[in-house]
Write a protein that binds this DNA or RNA. Structure first.
Lengths: 189, 189
DNA sequence: CCTACCGATCGGTAGG
DNA sequence: CCTACCGATCGGTAGG
């Protein structure tokens, strides 16, 4: 699998954005890590903003595909929720650093901010719909939809930070354990 | 309750850091919002870094007080966990913007980074200890301590983002509902 | 892909 | 608390 210079630059930029934040990372930082002069980066990318936009929107489209796919499946609402959680864990494992930009760095998007927010809202609304259906089907208790959506999605959004310190874990085990946690809590008796 | 100019400046700076991030907020941005010339800020604060350090360490000390207090209470491990969750919700409600700096902006601390990490680790270790004790007392099921700590604390850490959009909620109801969520999940049947 | 460089903006200081 | 200003660094361009 060949990687273009452009892809190399974006990968390194994402790593630096993830570590220090977009605003605190300079094109000179990126150039040094890539091994070229700052001016040369511009033969491969349009601007610093261009890197951020592509990184974030690429990940956002993975989430969109997942929710659309899950909504069309012929399984119970609760099974759909479980599939969505599995998908999101997979995305986090496969694109850990890019995923880490989603919660904090999207605020630095300039042209694409509105589009990002739209896509994020669609995902959240899909999640709320599944939760509502699962309650109606009596597969889960009658939860507060808004608060539960926040609670479950915030754990999934920040999973990257836990995973980046625990990469040795078996993804299958992570999925089982985290689903149990999100769906059954700590099992208060 | 009189607020000094210094407190006013810090409050406004925290609001801006919270919205755009530390690195993307300039002293000129802060000065404009405060209503003075940039140079005049330095009669009240030592440096931009000084503002960040005080904001973050002040909140961190609230978390430290909470965990120390809870660990010394003469109640069951599960009751301690519930008290810790309540405290953290209270801190988030009372200091929403400053709390929002904790997950993302601490990376920009310069002199105090090691101290912050130490304090954060103490809090996490206290939480893990309570979780372990609750399992041993059979008050909760035998959870994965590391993953559950991450899962519960990530929801609590990012509660500020949900709360800032839902400020009209009754804090008492928020505590009951969120505790239920974290401790019983969605009640999968 | 590099050398050379631009205008803008940054955090912060001197001096009153 | 302000005017005036400093050196450093920023994202990006011209031209080869």
């Amino acid at each position: 699998m060949e990687t273009t210079k452009r892809e190399q630059i974006i990968k390194i930029a994402v790593k630096l954005f993830s570590k220090r934040g977009y605003a605190a990372t300079s094109m000179r930082d990126i150039a040094k890590e890539v091994g070229m002069e700052p001016a040369s980066l511009y033969n491969h990318i349009k601007s610093k903003q261009d890197i951020l936009r592509h990184s974030i929107l690429d990940i956002a489209s993975l989430y969109t595909s997942s929710i659309q796919n899950v909504l069309n499946m012929k399984i119970s609402p609760l099974a759909k929720l479980e599939q969505l959680i599995s998908d999101q864990i997979s995305i986090t494992i496969e694109h850990t650093e890019a995923v880490s930009l989603i919660p904090s760095e999207w605020v630095h998007l300039e042209g694409a901010k509105a589009e990002f927010i739209k896509v994020r809202n669609e995902y959240e609304n899909g999640f709320k719909q599944l939760l509502t259906e699962a309650v109606e089907a009596k597969e889960i208790r009658s939860v507060d939809i808004e608060l539960t959506t926040f609670s479950v999605l915030s754990t999934l959004r920040y999973l990257y930070s836990w995973y980046s310190r625990n990469k040795e874990i078996d993804p299958a085990i992570l999925k089982v354990e985290l689903k149990k946690n999100l769906l059954e809590g700590v099992g208060r008796r």
